[in-house]
């Protein structure tokens, strides 16, 4: 039981971070970012290159991957999303653009890093063992703690900094924020960069445990969509709740249902559909986001 709970916390903290970036971008621009999983993979590969290949300290590699993704996100917003949003007759066109960017990132990752599964050396060795009731490698604990710290940091940033306040205002009401003197274009870009940076950060953190490969992008995006749906699209607390709930469901499901074969995700999907039929806007979302 303790093991299941610990696994749940560990998975939940990672998932929450992935969902945070997605929901941030959604809240600010009303864009369903299909490329989120690919951004995560890219972050993993950047950390792999600098930490695993070039031998820089892990923290430096992590920072580089954050910065790379932030710059990439800002460029994507400025040169791709912003013009399309301005010119398109329908909001949904951005979905095609996002899917196109997902393919493009896939192609770039394939050309630059190849299709092989890549891993990096462990950052900390050893396994935490509490009387064989709870077994957890130290590096997982470290990553989990780092993830939770990042989430706390992100919330603090959104809550107390000027940029965070501007972003929240933008998410609440774009026009009103503009009237209050928020530079909407600039903060959209910053928000997108921040969302992409979070994806890169998770990628960099998780590459130390699960490794990284090209095929992880799509499934990660789907999981992120699920978490956002559970919590409610465009709500930061909802994304965190959704991530933790999905993490726990997965941990419990894998432990309890393993004898029936691989049906954990099937059950999660079906219960999600039932849940959404009852409460379409998720746990904390605004109705009809």
């Amino acid at each position: 039981m303790e093991q299941i709970l610990a696994n749940g916390v560990y998975l939940g903290s990672q998932y929450a971070m992935i969902a945070l970036g997605l929901t941030l971008i959604f809240a600010l621009m009303n864009v369903l970012n299909f490329a989120h999983g690919q951004m995560y993979v890219l972050g993993g590969f950047v950390t792999y290159t600098f930490y695993g290949q070039l031998g820089l300290p892990f923290v430096v590699a992590l920072l580089i991957s954050c910065v790379t993704l932030a710059i990439l996100g800002a460029l994507i917003e400025k040169f791709l999303f912003a013009p399309v949003i301005k010119r398109s007759a329908r909001d949904e066109s951005t979905m095609l653009l996002a899917a196109g960017i997902a393919f493009l990132l896939d192609a770039i990752i394939l050309l630059v890093f190849g299709e092989k599964q890549r891993g990096v050396p462990k950052i900390v060795n050893g396994v935490f063992n509490w009387d064989f009731r709870l077994i957890m490698p130290y590096d997982r604990i470290l990553i989990c703690v780092l993830a939770i710290l990042s989430i706390v940091g992100f919330i603090a940033f959104m809550q107390y900094s000027k940029t965070g306040r501007a972003l929240r205002a933008l998410a609440q009401d774009r026009v009103a924020a503009q009237l209050m003197g928020v530079n909407v274009d600039r903060y959209s870009m910053i928000g997108f960069a921040l969302g992409a940076m979070l994806a890169g950060l998770v990628g960099g953190l998780l590459v130390t445990i699960t490794g990284i490969n090209l095929g992880m992008g799509g499934p990660t995006s789907i999981k992120a969509f699920m978490m956002v749906m559970i919590g409610g699209a465009g709500v930061i607390s909802g994304a965190i709740a959704g991530g933790i709930i999905l993490g726990f469901l997965e941990a419990i499901g894998l432990a309890v249902l393993s004898q029936y074969g691989d049906i954990t995700y099937l059950l999660i999907f079906i219960s999600l559909m039932i849940f959404l039929a009852i409460r379409p806007q998720g746990l904390m979302g605004k109705p009809w986001g």
Partner: peptide
Amino acid sequence: LPILRLRGVYFAMITLVL
């Protein structure tokens, strides 16, 4: 019957899950 009550991205995401 249940999912068509959803709109916008919610419907998009639930069909993706489907």
